[in-house]
Design a protein around this nucleic acid. Structure first.
Lengths: 236, 236
DNA sequence: AAGTGGTCTAGACCACATC
DNA sequence: ATGTGGTCTAGACCACTTG
C-alpha cells in the first residue's frame, strides 16, 4: 500500500477510535511529517484524500480539523457501489429475481457503449434492510468485461466479486436521479402502493480505463431510505 | 490566480471550445509541462482538480482522457449552491415569500451550531425554471456571519452576495436527502397535489473555517427536477 | 511576530499500458 | 522496450490566522 494511503487510513482510524468530533484539531503538518517520517507533500496528499472523503477540512494558517456529521441512519450517496460498505452494521440482504444472458436494448447499449449484438448479464434483485424492502434493482453488465456471474455471486456483493474475483479495477461512475411515482411492478416488490413516491437512480460504472461495465437502475423505497452526501469548495 | 487553477481553467475551456467527447485524449504530461512552462506536480495538481470535478480521468501508463456525460437537462447535485451556476442558460427566477430576522428553533440552532438567543435571517422563496415552480425553499442564515440581507439581495443569488458582497469564503456543505409526499403548503407553492412525491433536501453550508452559516430546506417539484452527480474511485 | 497550511520546483524512481 | 502517469523527496517561498 502507498504511503499516503497508509497515512490516510491511520489518521481516519485514529479519528474513529478516539471518537473525535467535528472541529477537533489534528496535529500540525510538521508533527505529522515527523510522526510518519515522510515529506510534507506526502502528508498533504493523505490529507487531501481525507478532505475529499469528507473526513477532515484544512484551514490555512490555522490547522487541520475533523469533519463529522451528526445524523445517523443515512446512506452515503457517493460511496454507493451496490451500497454494501456504507451500511456496515446494517443487516442487508438480497433476493435474486432473475439472472440471464441477453442482448441489450438500445438504452442499455448506449449506456454501456456497446453494439446491439454484444452479450450482457441481466440481474434483477430486491434488496432488503432489516428484512424490509429497501430497493428494487435491475442491472446490466457488459459480458465481455464481467465474463461470468452466477446466482450465488449475484446474491452477494457483485462489486466485491468484480474487484476481488475478476481483478477488475472500478474507476468512476455517473449517476442520474429523479423522483417519480411507483408503477405496479415496483410497488409490488417494495410492498408499497402504486402511485407512492419513489427515488429512482440510474448509474453507469466505469473501469479505471474509462470502459463502462455496469448500467444499473435502482428504485428505492421512500420510507426506508435517506441519503447523505458532501460537497467541497472546488464545486463553488 | 494560482497556476494550477489557471491551467485547470484553460484545459477545461479547451475541452469546451473544441467540444471534446468522452474518451478523447489530452496531450501527455510532458507536453503540458512544456506548454504551460511549469513543473510536473503543478500539472498533476491541475489535473487532479479536473478529475474531482469530473472533467477528465487519468489512466496510468496510458493517458489523460476527457470525461463527459451525454444527458442534458440534469441539475448537478454537488455544485448546488442555490443552484445558479449549473443552470446557466436556463431561465431561473425567484419569488420571495418571507424575509425576516428571528430566533432559531432548536432544529435550526443545532444545525447552525448556535445558541437559542442568536439572531438568524429567515428566507422563504419559491424558485422557478422557465416560469415553472422548481422548488420551495426555506433558509436560515446565522446573522452574526451573514450580517445583512434585504429583499433585493434575496431575490437574486444569495451565495453570490455572500462571497462577493460580504467577502465570505464558502468551504463545504453537508446534505441530507430523502423522498416523501408533499404536504398542503408545499403542494400549493409548487402547483401540485397534496400527497404527490417530493424530493426533500436539507443542506448545511460552512465557511472554509468550518463555521456553519446557512441551513436550508428545499422541496423540489418532482416533475421539473432531475439530478446528476459523479463518484470517483476513492470512494470505493 | 509566530504559527500553520498551500504552492511550486527539479529530479529520482516506480507502476502500469501498449506495442 | 518504450511511453505515460503516479509517488515521493527536500527545500524555497507564499498566504492566511492567531495572539
Amino acid at each position: 500500500m502507498l504511503k499516503y494511503q497508509e497515512i490516510a487510513h491511520e489518521l481516519e482510524k485514529y479519528i474513529e477510535d478516539h471518537k473525535l468530533q467535528q472541529g477537533d484539531k489534528l496535529p500540525v503538518l510538521e508533527s505529522l511529517m515527523a510522526q510518519f517520517n515522510v515529506s510534507k507533500s506526502t502528508i498533504t496528499k493523505a490529507l487531501d484524500l481525507l478532505e475529499r472523503k469528507g473526513v477532515v477540512f484544512q484551514v490555512r494558517g490555522s490547522g487541520i480539523f475533523v469533519r463529522r456529521h451528526k445524523r445517523k441512519g443515512y446512506i452515503s450517496l457517493l460511496s454507493n457501489q451496490g451500497f454494501q460498505k456504507e451500511i456496515e452494521g446494517f443487516n442487508l440482504t438480497s433476493k435474486v429475481i432473475e439472472l440471464d444472458v441477453r442482448k441489450p436494448t438500445q438504452e442499455v447499449a448506449e449506456n454501456l457503449n456497446i453494439g446491439p449484438d454484444a452479450d450482457i448479464y441481466y440481474v434483477k434483485r430486491v434488496r432488503y434492510i432489516h428484512g424490509q424492502a429497501l430497493a428494487f434493482e435491475e442491472s446490466f453488465y457488459n459480458k465481455s468485461i464481467v465474463t461470468y456471474l452466477n446466482k450465488e455471486i449475484v446474491s452477494e456483493s457483485i462489486f466485491n466479486y468484480i474487484s476481488e474475483g475478476l481483478g477488475l479495477k472500478v474507476g468512476f461512475s455517473d449517476m442520474y436521479l429523479h423522483v417519480d411515482k411507483l408503477n405496479e411492478e415496483e410497488a409490488e416488490y417494495l410492498g408499497l402502493k402504486k402511485g407512492d413516491p419513489k427515488l429512482y437512480l440510474e448509474s453507469v460504472y466505469h473501469l479505471t480505463n474509462g470502459q463502462p461495465f455496469d448500467f444499473s437502475k435502482l428504485t428505492y423505497n421512500y420510507e426506508q431510505s435517506q441519503f447523505f452526501f458532501q460537497s467541497n469548495s472546488h464545486f463553488f
